[in-house]
Design a protein around this nucleic acid. Sequence first.
DNA 1: CAGGAGAGCGCAATCGATTGCAGCACAAAG
DNA 2: CTTTGTGCTGCAATCGATTGCGCTCTCCTG
Lengths: 334, 334
Amino acid sequence: MAGQVRTLADIALIAGVTPATVSRALAGHAKISEKTRRRVVEIAESHGFQVNQTARNLRLGRTLSIGVVVPLGHESAQRVSDPFYTALIGHLMDGLARRDHAMLLSAVTPHDSRWLSNLAGSGRVDGIIVLCQSDQDPVLHTMAQSYKPMVVWGEAGAGDSSYCCVGTDNRRGGRLATQHLLSSGRRHVAYVGMTDIPELAARYSGYLDAHQKARVAPGPHISVPLAFDPGSPELREALRLHPEIDAIVAASDVIAMGTIKALSQCGRRVPEDVPVVGYDDVSLAAHILPALTTIRQDLATAADTMIDLLFRRMRGEETASVRIPLELVHRQSA
Amino acid sequence: MAGQVRTLADIALIAGVTPATVSRALAGHAKISEKTRRRVVEIAESHGFQVNQTARNLRLGRTLSIGVVVPLGHESAQRVSDPFYTALIGHLMDGLARRDHAMLLSAVTPHDSRWLSNLAGSGRVDGIIVLCQSDQDPVLHTMAQSYKPMVVWGEAGAGDSSYCCVGTDNRRGGRLATQHLLSSGRRHVAYVGMTDIPELAARYSGYLDAHQKARVAPGPHISVPLAFDPGSPELREALRLHPEIDAIVAASDVIAMGTIKALSQCGRRVPEDVPVVGYDDVSLAAHILPALTTIRQDLATAADTMIDLLFRRMRGEETASVRIPLELVHRQSA
DNA sequence: CAGGAGAGCGCAATCGATTGCAGCACAAAG
DNA sequence: CTTTGTGCTGCAATCGATTGCGCTCTCCTG
């Protein structure tokens, strides 16, 4: 039945009216007699007709879809499968669905500075959400000059934040995590993770802040990419190299989990010998052994905020960057 | 500079030619003099011009994007953030990007049977990949009659598989996991997880198969949704209720991790008292304590296969369902 | 110098839906 | 019976890019 009925014109033919009338009838917009409207709608439904969105979008000058991009330029490039990002993406999906927008998802390894303008200029999306600044601050900055409907997840205040940025106060987060350990008497707190993206750099700053405030010398900085290699012995060896370490601030929960495992392989117990604090509070964090003490970022709020800001920007408003609340969640690992 | 140049016509005006010529020049297709071509391209680039994809797609009758849908109809509805799915989505993203297609991602909670035909008929995508059959086998079946470019991840052989289905041999996977435990002498192997989607039902069948082959009575079946609640005490209580359990087959890695934690809360050690086998081999599986023994599904292959099949179907070919290899990965937990 | 070939480009239709403006029909009023 | 008014629909342009067909101009050949 639902064979060859693909366009408004097809329906129009069957109903004995013009495409214009069908369009109006289906939209319920203009003054179409109730009788005609009902008949058209009925025909449309019985044939399983659906309006072609591409044509509709062309005419209306919009796409009803939002581009979500994850640049993977930085050295510590987390895969998109990092639980933190996937949870955030999940929430974004929900929020966009509620506003009847689709999500065009892509991860890009920036080879040149065009990855962003390509998407913006393609006419495929009405707005863009960039997840992670990566090392692309200049590109984001430049883009923001000419392209308004864009919101970035990351460390607000990185660069001169000419773009609208949503994120937590990572410096405070790093400080909280570190203070938690220092205040329990630990004196050789190591930082495990990199600092090659603004968010992580800020966490590390907070780590240093806490040490300074407590008048304790910072511990070693062990560099581990967010997407660290399962089998790599680097972390283990670094830990062996620093037997004085008596606590650890990890740059993310995934790193924390890896660290806990590496510690156990070195014969050190968590939290007795070495307490570990993670970052993100990913969904698994509460379920592993030991349950992770970590810095929780409220992703539902984060996603809603980004979407709200984006839609306001799409309407032409100017919006400032926003900080999302954050808290230390006390569990077993520290 | 890049101000008001948005259409082919704008470029044409500047170059003193017609839009037709600009189109051909940029496409490099037809017979355009090298001189004209070079000039047009130069003008286009200097103005940062990009072809409007919506218009292009309308004209060409395609969208260059693929819909990836995750139905969440089943009771055990895993969130999209289940690491298994996110990893699969990540690989799909890579594969689609290689073929210059975008990914339109959405999760739907099916309220009626139209969630799929809505997407298919919207004209927003050229093809659809459905991740998980959920409880929507009938919908998939019906859809496959009229809509060809669709591939489903799940248990091939569920229903009558009128649709093209890619997945592992879940029954065999369940059998392997169970045999591993039985062959080490365990006699009260419990299954933790649900059976409300075809994949899981097959894993459970495999679990039963192994018992039958070993002439051992199956252990208890503890029902836990894939997205089980962090704080819920159900699992813990079920374990207390069955002190005879001396091994566990979990329906997924995430469940396995939760189970390991619950076991420890009951004072039982893994793997000494109760070995646990997971399913999926998610990226974290190797990194937790104890490292998870699990059934590995090769997701890179899976994603490539699905994409390959989908594109063949988009070209009009018929394709049969495909089974992806699977293996038991032996680590510490069992 | 005329005729023919062929390269290069323009014209206009097309993809499918939306919408301002105009026109028709029917009803009520004079 | 004619006029005015109002309510429905249709006409045709539009969104921006693509492409078959055909025209023009150049250059070569006889």
